Simulated scan of single mutants.
Amino acid sequence: MADLQDELTAPAEAGDLEAARSAPADVARPAPAGHVPADAGNAPPTPATPTPAAPTPASHTAPHDLLARHPVADGYCGLPQVLRTLPWYDLELGESAVEADLPRLRAGGTGAQLWAPHVAPDAPVTTTLEQIDLITNVVARHPEDLRLARSASDTADARAHGRIAVLIGPAPATAAADSLGTLRSLHALGLRALTLSGTSWASDDGLNRFGEEVVREMNRLGMLIDLTGASAATATRVLAVSKAPVTLTRSGARALNHHPGNAPDDLLTALGESRGLCLVPCSADRTGPALRDVADHVDHVRGLAGPESVGLSGTYDTGDAHPEDLPDVAGYPALIAELQGRGWTDADLALLTWGNAERVLRSTEFVSRAAQHRRGPSTATPEP
């Protein structure tokens, strides 16, 4: 187990974050040349060197420079569904029909994205398979820019080689068609996150026994559990059953905006206590029409869940309207500048953009490896 625990933090990532945490806010100035102590001879005292002023937003690392070191791990992008509807497109040179083409991903400092498959209610498994196939082929056509990631190590490796990591998911729970065998097959094809809502086993009444087995199987497989839009009863039970940290891939704070997909304060607090992750969306409906509204939600989530349980989710190419100054993925530097103006340190911003998502991925993998030593694939079926 020791060697598994060692994998929870990649050395390069930990080094960057540790350096950011340990960097002093102020550096003491040396005494001016010719300074004489006040008690030397009869010379009048030399005026004391002024105490350095508290850091101002201008003393922060420039947003583009910070994102070059700690790129955004974006929690939700609907690009696959948009590409599916286009007769042709050019992601490499720029594509006006989408909000997350390669030039804008680079300009916004994006280092990883979750690409969410769109699932048709009348054919959930087929459409999920088709979208996984599309994602795999799109990534393969851009090897100098994109890399398909199936693990935290893949994500870190993509970043180290200047690629943008693409993780498949989250898909709605209906994609698994109430079958753990189907869930395992989708995982084998690359699906790495599932949203637990909208099914008979994850409903307003909470998880039933089969739903609990889905959570355990996702832990064993190493899949991210997404509670966006889940009922309070489901969220409470998932937090109790899951051994891995859970996520909200696109949730703001319900206390600031009563959108049904946003999270109440008690869930945000519980998420922080369990070291989960809430990824705040850049969505006018969920967070508000202005960039400062998104920053308000990020501040609120950090205040309740803590700086290690908040991240960012663009929700681009989903059909959502976006706040002013955040029309596409190129807007992340403006959001970082806004947060710097509110007193966020470089260390906390490094956690917000990359560190927290990487930790959750690694923790989920660690739980998976431990679970696979304890149990094999589940054969549970839904209750009548």
Score class of each variant (00 low, 15 high):
L93S: 15
A25M: 12
L277K: 05
L114F: 15
P143A: 03
L312S: 00
A112I: 08
L361H: 07
V246W: 01
R374I: 11
L221T: 01
T136W: 01
A20I: 04
A290S: 07
G261Q: 11
D328C: 09
T46N: 11
S153G: 13
L291A: 03
T318L: 14
H35P: 01
Q372G: 04
A176K: 03
G162E: 08
P52S: 04
L129V: 12
G341H: 11
G311R: 05
L186I: 06
Q5W: 11
V298N: 05
A255K: 06
I135W: 08
Q5F: 13
L268T: 09
T195S: 15
G261A: 10
A25W: 08
T199F: 07
A48S: 13
D320G: 04
R209H: 11
A230H: 02
A337C: 10
V367K: 00
G15T: 14
I164H: 02
A244T: 04
L268V: 09
A120G: 06
P50W: 08
T9S: 14
L180R: 00
S151C: 06
M223S: 09
G272Q: 05
H373G: 11
R375Q: 15
P170E: 11
Q81T: 10
V241N: 08
T247E: 12
T49A: 14
G314F: 10
D157S: 15
K243H: 15
E383N: 07
T247H: 02
A321R: 15
S185F: 14
L207M: 09
R29C: 03
A173G: 13
R286V: 06
